[in-house]
């Protein structure tokens, strides 16, 4: 389904005279928030595939109002859990990109990810914590990689949990550092109930991603993650 969506996007891109679909999706990936919130029918993987290999045009969400409206108005049943969060980190995009690009670093600040093993330039093997002490594993591909700007990944066909995501690094105004935006989507796999996925992803996925990004920021800015676990207290 995702690949079809990608194909549809690409074919539209070739026919649309005013603004190519590829650019539109690039605009969504590159632009501001809320647009994705309204994306109901398209899978994130479709979007990411569509823009893979293309230049990442930066448009604000307001660059194409009609698209934004269209997207926000879109209706449909969405089984995916999709979250989007942004944080500003007082480090260069290059430093942040380099740390993130080594996926084996991700468990350092992502609590739901137990481990990531990098297999080769594109592929990696992920192990995530699941409810009741279980784990879920899958292989993922980097499907879009733009140094110091964007990394997009998606699970391979037949993964236990179909998931995809991207992280984008863009300069914050003036001397305020780098804006790091993460969008992730987990699709409900066959035979697995949505609630289980929700648990995997935390009771409140938005908050979980928010916490993970905050830990990423702490780690990058201060070299450690603030904690009180293990401190003194009255029994």
């Amino acid at each position: 389904m995702e690949t079809e969506a990608g194909k549809i996007n690409q074919s539209q891109a070739e026919t649309d005279e005013t603004i190519s679909d590829k650019e539109r999706w690039a605009s969504i990936v590159g632009g501001s928030a809320m647009v994705l919130m309204g994306l109901q029918q398209r899978s994130l993987r479709g979007i990411l595939t569509a823009i893979a290999g293309g230049g990442l045009a930066y448009h604000g969400a307001t660059a194409d109002k009609s698209l934004q409206d269209k997207v926000v108005d879109a209706t449909g049943i969405n089984k995916a859990i999709r979250v989007e969060k942004t944080v500003t980190i007082d480090k260069s995009a290059e430093e942040l990109y380099n740390y993130w690009h080594n996926f084996e670093n991700l468990p350092n600040f992502m609590k739901h990810v137990k481990s990531v093993q990098v297999l080769d330039m594109r592929r990696s093997h992920w192990v995530a914590n699941a409810p009741l002490g279980q784990t879920i594993e899958w292989d993922a591909d980097i499907i879009n990689d733009q140094p110091n700007q964007l990394i997009a990944w998606a699970s391979e066909e037949g993964a236990q949990v179909d998931n995809s995501g991207f992280v984008r690094f863009s300069p914050a105004p003036s001397d305020r550092g780098t804006e790091v935006k993460v969008v992730m989507e987990y699709n409900v796999p066959g035979g697995m109930v949505t609630a289980a996925i929700a648990k995997l992803f935390g009771e409140e996925p938005e908050q979980q991603i928010g916490d993970e990004l905050r830990r990423f920021k702490q780690l990058m800015e201060t070299g450690e993650i603030a904690t009180t676990e293990g401190q003194s207290r009255g029994q």
Binding site: T86, T88, R176, E179
Partner: peptide
């Protein structure tokens, strides 16, 4: 929430 996202979380 919209403002938070549109300002890089700041």
């Amino acid at each position: 929430e919209a403002l938070k996202e549109m300002t890089g979380g700041r």
